[in-house]
Computed example of a mutant assay.
Amino acid sequence: MENEIPAPTEIDFGDEYIRGFLFDNVLHSENDGDIHFGLYMPESYDGSESYALFVTLPGYGGLYFQGVGANIQTEDYGTLAQKYNGRMIIAAPQMNDWKETSARQTVVLTRYLIGHYNIDSEKVYLNGYSGGGETGSLVMEMAPELYTAFLHCSSQWDGDLTPLAEAMTPVYMVTGESDSYYGSSSVREPMKSSYRSTGAKALPMSRLKSWSCWI
C-alpha cells in the first residue's frame, strides 16, 4: 500500500540554468527536509494541456553535496529524455544519499509536481542509475502506484518487492552480467524471490509498452 507522506509547505526556485535545467530549486518539506532539484520545462508548456513527467535519480557523483547541477553535468538521462518526448517535464532531484529519506523526498517532489502542473497521470516515469537505482527501488516500495513505469539502471534492489508486484508497475532493469560493482544477481535473485513468494506472474511484454510514450 502507498505510504502517506505529507505534502511540502513551500518551494523556492533558483536562478541558474545548466544544460536547460533550472537549478537550485528547493522544495521545503516539514517532515523530510529540503529537497534540491533541477527542473526542465519545455517552452511549449503553458498549462493548457497535460504533459508527461520524468523524474531521474542520479548515482554517486551527482548528489547535492557534490555540487549544484552535478547530476545533469555527469549524466545524460535527463537531457536525452527531451529528445524522446517534447511534451514532458523533467525533474532531476539531488539527494544526499540513496536511502529511505531520499526515497521519501522523491515521492514528495513527484507529488508536488503532479499537484502543481498539468501532468498526465498515466505518463509519470522514474529512472534511477547506480545509487539512484537503489533509491528508486525504495520509492517503488513506498508508492509504486504513483508511477507509470520505472527504469532501473546498473544498480541493486534494496526495497521490498511485494508492493511493486501487487501494483504491477512495469520495471525495466538494465545491469551488466559482469557489472564491476553490482553484478546482475543483485537484481535477478530478489525479483525471482518476490514473484515466487507473492504468487504473482512475471510482467508480460505488453505491460512495458507504456515506455513507448517517450522512448
Rank of each mutant, 00 (worst) to 15 (best):
P190V: 14
G61T: 05
S137T: 15
R207A: 12
E49T: 09
M95Q: 12
T101I: 12
I119A: 05
Y129T: 07
S212W: 03
A52D: 10
S121G: 03
T74K: 04
I5G: 07
R111H: 09
L203A: 15
G115I: 04
I18C: 03
P170G: 15
S194P: 01
D97T: 08
L126E: 15
I90C: 10
D76C: 12
P58K: 05
P58L: 07
P42G: 01
P93C: 05
R196T: 14
S180N: 10
A92R: 02
Q73E: 14
T175A: 07
P6H: 12
S155M: 07
R207K: 10
D160A: 04
V171Q: 10
N31L: 14
D120L: 05
D32I: 08
M142N: 14
L138A: 05
Q66K: 13
G115M: 04
Y64K: 15
A149E: 04
Y77W: 11
K123R: 15
P6L: 10
Q156H: 06
A92W: 05
S193G: 02
Y40A: 00
L27A: 06
V187A: 06
M140H: 13
P163R: 08
M41D: 02
T56N: 11
Q156L: 13
Y77F: 15
S210I: 05
G176Q: 10
E177K: 09
Y181A: 10
L164W: 11
G47V: 08
I89A: 03
H152M: 12
Q94F: 04
E134K: 01
S210D: 06
D97S: 12
G136M: 10
F13M: 09
W98V: 11
E145M: 12
M140Y: 13
A91Q: 06
L53F: 03
E16P: 00
D76K: 09
E75N: 12
A52K: 01
F21Q: 03
Y40W: 05
Q156G: 11
K209Y: 07
D179M: 08
G33W: 00
D15G: 04
S102I: 09
A149N: 02
E10I: 05
N3V: 11
A143N: 10
A103N: 09
L161V: 08
W211F: 15
M1L: 07
K201D: 15
Q82M: 11
K192Q: 15
H28W: 11
G199L: 11
G69E: 13
F13R: 07
S50N: 02
M205T: 15
A52R: 01
L203R: 13
T101Y: 00
Y147V: 06
F54S: 03
D24V: 06
Y172S: 14
I119C: 05
G14K: 08
Y60G: 06
V108A: 02
A103F: 13
E100Q: 12
V124P: 09
K192C: 07
D120F: 01
L126V: 13
G78P: 07
C153N: 08
I89H: 05
E2V: 14
G67N: 06
H116G: 08
Y51R: 00
I35H: 12
K201E: 15
A202E: 14
